[in-house]
Amino acid sequence: MVQVIKEGILLEKTAHDFESHGVLNPGAIREGSVVHLFYRAVKEGNYSSIGHCTLDGPHQIVSRDTNPILFPEFAYEVHGVEDARVCKIDDTYYLTYTAYDGMNALGSLATSHDLKTFEKQGIIVPQLSYSDFEKLLEKAGIEKEHYLGYCNSTSFIPERNQANLMWDKDVFFFPQRIQGKLCFLHRIKPDIQMVLIDELSDLTPEFWTTYLSDLKNNTILTPKYEHEISYIGGGAPPIETESGWLLIYHGVKCTPEGNIYSACASLLDLHDPKKEIARLNYPLFEPEYPWELKGEVDNVCFPCGTTLFGDTLYIYYGAADEQIAYASLSLSELISELKLNTIKDETV
């Protein structure tokens, strides 16, 4: 098994109003020796914004903003700007987040050229009611129970409320174009899907109708092992290695006592990332310490960001939806372990 060191708590809530009730789920990007963390900050009433701090190296805090860098401005995000992930493509930073209006949670995008000022590009995932999604699946001959069994708010779905949209979140981009195309992952429960486009303007309603009609072929990972058997979702932007794209994601196991969120790892083909090469058949790490077992939501390790210093991979994660912790491990050891769990060698 891969040796993972739980380094402990990195950030906690403060007396500042915007983060007085919790900090969690940080996106991360390294620029030289400086690491930027863009984390979800929660204030009273469960309203979220994105806070920002910088680190010298992987963990030494050198600055922390006293106001959010991104906050609700539009109707589609009035209740929350949540769970940032960030990467750089060419000269542009792509910061994705979940926009929450109190009912709907949808993947959205903001871009920047300096990590200081961001321009919101709006929602970039499909905006369909569950009722319309169901009709589309039926028309395409897709097993609707596979998706509609994962209602995010059960009181809405039986009524087929048109205002309740299909949740689509955990969105983030690959840090470079793949075969000349922008590539991002997203999550329609219970799986992880992939989008390839020439430009953001391609994301039209017509595009999504065609895409969702072929949803099975646009799905790259499905729940497989016991620790992720209920559903999975994206974690941090993929990391390019000689052996493939390393994907750190989260897996969920639903139990009578509540859901258990673990960090997981998979390896995708460098040239065709829709092809999964390998996957750990055990959680990379899971809740075990007090700060992960008890909090706003118990039993949560939710990775959103990584940085690499030499061969050491640092993973930043939300701990029990209340604090930010980080873990470290050897990248080469993880890749070697993944190669022992290649898809073609599986017998399960």
Rank of each mutant, 00 (worst) to 15 (best):
V86T: 04
V86R: 04
V86K: 04
V86C: 04
V86I: 15
C87M: 08
C87V: 10
K88L: 08
K88Q: 13
K88V: 06
K88P: 12
K88G: 05
I89Q: 05
I89Y: 00
D91I: 08
D91E: 15
D91Y: 09
T92Q: 08
T92L: 08
T92P: 05
Y93K: 07
Y93T: 10
Y93G: 08
Y93W: 09
Y94M: 00
Y94A: 00
Y94T: 02
Y94R: 01
Y94N: 00
L95Q: 04
L95D: 03
L95N: 06
T96S: 15
Y97K: 12
Y97C: 07
Y97R: 10
T98S: 15
T98D: 09
A99K: 08
A99E: 09
A99P: 12
Y100P: 06
Y100C: 03
Y100V: 01
D101S: 10
D101Q: 12
D101I: 10
D101H: 11
G102I: 02
G102N: 01
G102L: 03
M103C: 11
M103P: 03
M103T: 15
M103R: 15
M103N: 14
N104A: 06
A105V: 07
A105C: 13
A105M: 14
A105L: 14
L106K: 13
L106V: 04
L106M: 12
L106C: 07
G107A: 00
G107S: 03
G107Y: 00
G107I: 04
S108L: 03
S108D: 08
L109R: 10
L109T: 09
L109H: 12
L109I: 07
A110R: 10
A110G: 11
T111S: 05
T111D: 05
S112I: 06
S112F: 09
H113S: 14
H113L: 09
H113G: 11
H113Y: 13
H113C: 09
D114P: 07
D114Q: 01
D114N: 15
D114T: 05
D114Y: 06
L115S: 03
L115H: 06
K116E: 14
K116F: 10
K116N: 15
K116L: 13
K116W: 07
T117E: 13
T117R: 13
F118V: 04
F118E: 08
F118P: 13
E119V: 13
E119T: 15
E119N: 13
K120L: 02
K120S: 08
K120A: 00
K120H: 14
Q121C: 12
Q121V: 00
Q121P: 05
Q121I: 05
G122Y: 01
I123V: 15
I123N: 08
I123P: 13
I123H: 07
I123L: 05
I123A: 01
